[in-house]
Design a protein around this nucleic acid. Structure first.
Lengths: 201, 201
DNA sequence: AGGTTCCTGTACCGATCGGTATTGTTCGTA
DNA sequence: TACGAACAATACCGATCGGTACAGGAACCT
């Protein structure tokens, strides 16, 4: 028996991909075992709570990644408009232009929603709030900033659905470009917040 | 043994609800049997192709419903702006303000996508095209009409995801209201196409 | 009434499910 | 070199999966 000295954190990305591709119900332990190269014994060694703990760990990692790479930059960036622009690039990359499913969104539509309700809710709440704050600091009036943030986060989720259903990744890119333009359009009432000219960081 | 003389078409709505609530993988035959009140024997009498045929029949019915109540009105309405406004009302009603999942969208994110790829693609293609045509006739230039149609259909899907994840139906309503406003805003270049003043049929 | 068709319920099939127990194997440590 | 902890692979558990076989009752025909 080979001993690979795997760490729990090593298998998380593989695990995540299995849940993304097959959903919670569709990801059977044999599938997970094959995808991670770990036998059931090893799997249950790392995740005594079984499948639910595996999915929970994946959600936690995803949450952490978005917190570090998306939410916090939005909240803390000196140049909020640039941070918003960066968010679109980061997200498009993360979702592989719509070829890759958003696990949080997929779980929200699935049977497993109730099981992870708190986490799912939290993820989207924090995304919307972080984006709304950045939009507000970029000059959008606070009411419309919240509304625009909701529309944008929802729009990204919808773009994943549509691009996957149509099997056309360019649909994802196109929708994100539209959302980006609306987020970066100079708000009417702010004097000189420089809008990103479609090519900045 | 009671004979209920059920028709195949009678069980379709119940079947649809089971698939919506539990997804394809999550909808087990025992669950389906309980929800429809039909034993496995009856189920396989009506759907010899098993679960796949059941889901296929549900998709076909949904497709037919949208064709009759959404797509065709968009294509054939005398007043395209009114048809677009009606679409939002119809859709909000159908999705129960985001409390009810879009089965086509959910399947698109799930493992079962490949199994029904053609149907899923067709549904969204026809929705986007019908809406784009109506928007075009309402005065949007053809390029932006296609783009806006894509954004709108995707936005509706995203609104379902977001509202379900947040467990707040008003998010669905709010996003749809925003999309509606953008669709009905008087296009810059058309002379006198009357924009719906947010309250008409 | 007798036969036929159409449905319905149930028992049952092999396969696979999530999960556990057990046994091996490879380490760090000393 | 010996030991115990950490990791890996396998066999196996009861339950449930999707699907089949079949017997039986209701409605219809003649």
């Amino acid at each position: 028996m080979a001993r690979t000295v795997a760490e729990r954190s090593d298998v998380l990305p593989l695990l995540a991909e299995v849940f993304r591709e097959h959903g919670y119900e569709g990801a059977s332990l044999s599938l997970i075992s094959k995808a991670t190269g770990l036998g059931k014994g090893s799997l249950y060694h790392f995740f005594p709570g079984g499948k639910e703990e595996m999915a929970g760990a994946v959600l936690a990692e995803i949450d952490g990644w978005f917190e570090a790479n998306v939410f916090r930059p939005l909240r803390e960036a000196e140049d909020p408009a640039a941070a918003v622009a960066a968010m679109f690039a980061t997200v498009a990359d993360y979702f592989r232009s719509g070829r890759r499913v958003c696990l949080v969104g997929a779980l929200s539509l699935s049977d497993a929603r109730d099981r992870f309700a708190g986490r799912l809710q939290d993820y989207f709440v924090r995304w919307v709030e972080a984006l709304a704050e950045a939009l507000g600091r970029a000059g959008h009036p606070s009411a419309s900033a919240g509304m625009l943030a909701e529309e944008t986060v929802g729009g990204i989720q919808g773009a994943v659905v549509l691009a996957r259903a149509l099997d056309r990744p360019e649909v994802f890119e196109r929708i994100l470009a539209g959302l980006r333009a609306r987020c970066l359009a100079r708000p009417a009432n702010v004097p000189a917040q420089r809008a990103q000219p479609a090519g900045a960081a």
